[in-house]
Amino acid sequence: MPDEVLDCRGQRCPLPVIAAARRMPEVPVGTVVRVLADDPAAAVDIPAWCRMRGQEFVAAITGPDGPAYDIRRAH
């Protein structure tokens, strides 16, 4: 389970990625943040952001709140 949830539903690309990029440095290393994002580009861009920033992309899930992406702060 994630440690916190970032609700980016209704936001268009690249806003969910920007929201994740703002939040991740504020949480302790090891924290898992779940980004809720229904923009289809998030499925591509959140894993790509993790790769570019050296953060851990844990998984993409589709739950009751729609598509979601778990990121663990790695450093």
């Binding site: 690309c13 690249p14 990625v17 923009d39 289809p40 580009a41 499925a43 591509v44 790509a48 570019m52």
Partner: peptide, 24 residues
């Protein structure tokens, strides 16, 4: 190939298949 520039609002299927950043 960004989604906001396409009529379907979906990112390019090519960038998606490659797993590279699609916005900007």
């Amino acid at each position: 190939g960004s989604s906001c520039t396409s009529s379907t609002l979906r990112p390019s299927h090519v960038l998606e298949a490659m797993g590279v950043l699609s916005h900007g």
